Structure formats: structure tokens, C-alpha cells
Simulated assay, not measured.
Amino acid sequence: MTQFNEIYDRACERKGGEANIHTLLNEPHSCNALSLRTDDEWLEEFTRKIFQSGFYWSVVNAKWDGFREVFWNFSIDKLLYMSPEMYEQRAQDERIIRNYKKVQSIAINCHMIYELQQEHGSFSTLVANWPSSDIINLWLLLRKRGNRLGGNTGPFALRALGKDTFLLTKDVESYLRANHIIDGGLQSLKSLKAAQQHFNELQQSSGLSMTALSQLIAFSVGDNIIQSS
């Protein structure tokens, strides 16, 4: 039995059977669909995930209409001309969650996306054409050139808008450590490369997306079990 089959069988056992497991899996968007997203959407989702980090997601989501009003629907063309003083002022607006350091990330990530637009035509084109077999280097690009997009923040935003990527959640990390695929810091380059190689091997043997594989691994471990009827 291959390692993928073991993961799949374990996930089915824990999540109510094979018929149910497929209703729980998400599929990424096509390259064409990703390329049609506006670059403003990426800035918005990066900002949402930054504010959700370490905070109640429901509170952030409840405030999100206010964020859109305060930051012009995350229009990159408009935000590029917003002064530091305007960002500081808007960080105090009661319509949003008032966290100045996180608000500052909007300006930095806006400029990052603008710079990458100049290099690649659009940020969406860059993301759409980036191979999932090398997804960790897209993570590293966001971490290096963006602000507060390290750890799982950048990858979660990519996944939310349909990019095919695995996620290093606690369950996935537990699996990788239990199988001696990683043994050092989770975000070290060595661990990221080892995780990428392992997911590439699983994809070659299964034909599934990185998104589905990541979910199956998470379903195969942890405490969340669904009993089949």
C-alpha cells in the first residue's frame, strides 16, 4: 500500500466514509480563473488574513464592509497615493479594527503588488502561472517582499482565492513530524523544501491537487472525527 493510500483510507475512516470525504474536499481554481482576478482582490485578501491572524475571524468578517469603505475597496490605484498621515488617521476609524501596525501592512503590500505588476503584467498573472510544485517559493516571495505575510498568513490568502497550495496547519505539521519528513523549525528553508518534496511525491502518485492532499492529511490526523451512519 502506498503512503497516499494509507492517508486516504485513514481520512475516509475518520470522516464518514469515501462518499462523504469527497464532499469535504475543495478544488483550486484553474490558471485562467486565477488570472482573471483583479489585483485589488489579492490586496484585500492579504489584508483580511493579516487582521484575522491572532484575532477572532468572525469579528474581522463582521467589520469587513467598514474596511472596504475606509480603504476604497482596496483599489491599488488609489491606495498608492495615500500618504502615511492618511493611513495613520484611518487606522483610528471606528469602522475597522484599529491596529496601526496591521494597517501599515496595507501600504507595504499595495506597493509590493504594484512592483510585481510592473515585472509580470499583473499580480494575478504571477500567481496563476506559479507552479504548485514550487509553491513554497511563492510563499517566500510574499514573505520577503510583502509585510506580515510569513507563516501561514500568505498561504491562507492564496488558498482563499483559489490558488493550489498545501497549508502547514497544526495537523499537517503533526503528520510531517510523525513521518520524519521534517524535524526542525516549521518555517525553516530545510523544512519547507522537505514538505514541498513530499507533497510533490504524493501528487505524482495520486493525481490530486495540493489543496486536496493537504486536506486529506489534515482529515487523517487530529481529534475531529465524523462517525459514519
Rank of each mutant, 00 (worst) to 15 (best):
A157I: 04
I96P: 03
E94L: 11
A33H: 12
L189K: 15
L213Q: 05
S214K: 00
S214P: 04
G207F: 06
I181L: 06
F51H: 08
K49H: 14
Q52T: 09
F51N: 05
L161I: 14
R48L: 13
W42C: 00
Q89L: 12
D171P: 01
H180Q: 10
T169C: 04
T23R: 12
L24M: 15
S83A: 05
S53Q: 11
D93M: 07
Q196E: 11
L213V: 05
S228L: 08
R10H: 07
L126M: 14
D171W: 07
D65H: 07
F4K: 00
H111Y: 08
D164L: 11
A218F: 05
L79F: 06
Y56K: 15
N26C: 04
I50C: 03
T23W: 13
Q3N: 07
E88G: 13
Q3M: 06
F67C: 05
F55A: 06
N200Y: 00
N200Q: 07
S124G: 08
R143Y: 12
L149K: 03
Q92S: 08
N179G: 02
A128T: 07
S220F: 09
I226Y: 14
S191W: 10
V103T: 13
C31H: 10
A128I: 07
I108C: 10
E115N: 09
N179P: 01
I135G: 02
A11M: 04
L36V: 06
L25A: 01
L79T: 02
Q187I: 09
I226D: 09
F67Y: 12
A128Y: 09
A107S: 15
D134W: 03
K144F: 04
D223F: 02
A178T: 10
N99V: 15
I21S: 08
L216A: 03
L186Q: 03
